[in-house]
Design a protein around this nucleic acid. Structure first.
Length: 174
DNA sequence: AAGAAGATTCGCT
DNA sequence: GCGAATCTTCTTA
C-alpha cells in the first residue's frame, strides 16, 4: 500500500516496500510489557498510527494491528517515494533518490511525520492515511528483523526483493 | 536513584 | 567500520 501525508506544503506519499511485524506476545515488541505513556497508540483499533522517538534521534512509524485494547503493530521500514519528492529531499538534506525513504527513521523524516501524527486513524479521512497501490508488486521475501535481540530468530521482516529503497546492505535486499 | 539497553542515523576514518 | 547524539523504559541497588 501507499502511505500518504497531506501537509500544508503539499502531498507526500510513498509505496511501502519493507515492514516488520511485532505481534502479540513478541518479546521485541513495545507492547509486550503493557501500556506506557509512549506506546498507547499500539493499543488502538487496528489501522492507527503509533509514532515514537527511537534512540532519542529518529521517529519511527507503526500501524497498530489488533483489536482495541490489545497491543501489536507493524513497523514501516522503507518507502519508495512517489509524490512530493522535492519536499522529501529538502527534509532529508539529500538528493539521493534511493536514500530518501530507505530506513525507518529516514522514512518519517521524508514524510514529515513526528509525534503530531501519533494516534491518527490511517483508515479514515485525515492528513495521514493509507491508499491502495496501483503499481505492480514484486516478489515478497522475509528475513529476521533488524536491530533487535529478543525473539531475534523470528522471520517477521518482509520486503520487496531487489528494491533499491529497502534498508540494509545488498544481502538484506535480495 | 542511577545506569544500561534500545525497532537508528550521520559523520569521520 | 566506529562512535556520538539523546529520549524512554527497564534493571538493579
Amino acid at each position: 500500500m501507499v502511505v500518504v501525508h497531506d501537509t500544508d506544503s503539499g502531498r507526500l506519499s510513498g509505496r511501502i516496500v519493507e515492514t516488520e511485524a511485532y505481534p502479540v506476545g513478541d518479546a521485541a515488541g513495545h507492547a509486550f510489557r503493557g501500556k506506557t505513556p509512549r506506546n498507547g497508540s499500539l493499543f488502538l483499533e487496528r489501522g492507527h498510527a503509533y509514532v515514537y522517538l527511537n534512540y532519542g534521534i529518529s521517529f519511527l512509524l507503526n500501524v497498530s494491528s489488533e483489536a482495541r485494547g490489545v497491543g501489536g503493530g507493524v513497523l514501516l521500514r522503507a518507502i519508495e517515494p512517489l509524490e512530493g519528492v522535492d519536499m522529501m529531499a529538502e527534509s532529508r538534506g539529500t538528493t539521493s533518490f534511493a536514500d530518501l525513504g530507505r530506513g525507518p527513521g529516514r522514512l518519517t523524516k521524508a514524510l514529515r511525520i513526528d509525534l503530531d501524527e501519533d494516534g491518527l486513524d490511517l483508515c479514515a479521512a485525515g492528513p495521514l492515511w493509507l491508499a491502495t497501490d496501483g503499481h505492480e508488486t514484486g516478489t515478497i521475501r522475509k528475513s529476521v528483523r533488524i536491530g533487535i535481540t529478543r525473539d531475534a530468530h523470528r522471520l517477521l521482516r518482509f520486503y520487496e526483493r531487489g528494491n533499491i529503497h529497502v534498508s540494509g546492505g545488498r544481502k538484506l535486499r535480495q
